[in-house]
Amino acid sequence: MNLYVLLKMVPDTVEELNVAADGKSLDSEFLRFKLNDPDEHALEQALLLKEKHGGKVTVVTLDAPEVDDVLFTALAKGADRAVKLPVNQAELGTVAAARVLADFLKAEATPLPPDTLVLPGSYAIDDLEGELAPLLATALELPYVGVVCGIAPAEGKATVRKEFAGGLRGEFEVALPAVLGIQSADKPPRYVPVAKVRAAMKSARIETVDVPPPDRPRQLELERTYKPEAAGHAEMLEGSPEEVADRLVEILVKNSAI
């Protein structure tokens, strides 16, 4: 199979996020980046498909902080090719990012071979302008399914599982090539030892492919960005674990849980 995985860096929300002086963007000084969670699953799903059905996994990113580490990690995990498009992700909304990635994929082959799956993560935590997968599918004129949690390819088509709510899922048949927004892979994303990533850094190479920059980086004008002022806040319990536990027991009694 011909598998393209689109990887996006997002701010790590474990760290504190602050708004920059412009009142619109995030303060980049203390920002740490990580791979978007669903993208990690998209990569795992592609690697699982390759192991089962053969083929080639290409990981593609726009330029972003710490992105080389992510690309080398993908190679160490078993991706065959890593491509970086030298367009700064930070300045792009999802619509423009989809256009850049679609241009790259069109330049790869038009039309894309029938055994091609384009696999972005189902969503990203900064998708203010919409999700990448449906925008990409529209630009490439390919079928799309989102919130995918399982793929079984067959000749010219694939059976995919999509999550609804309450644990309910649906099974869909999709003609290939297709764009599938991945929510979770069939297995948890694999771990790769640091030594293997270092080896990949020495032996493998990140390809840079030039693409025309988008004419309009963002669709939406932000009025302001801010930290939410909570309507309420929890009553905080302080003290040693024993003291806190005593208070919690009282609360459990009050709520008829004991």
């Binding site: 619109k24 995030l26 203010l128 932000l222 009025e223 302001r224 960005t225 801010y226 930290k227 939410p228």
Partner: peptide, 13 residues
């Protein structure tokens, strides 16, 4: 809009 896992809000007109 609530972004970044609900940690940041943005107003858009």
């Amino acid at each position: 809009s609530q972004l970044f896992g609900g940690k940041i809000y943005s107003d858009v007109k």
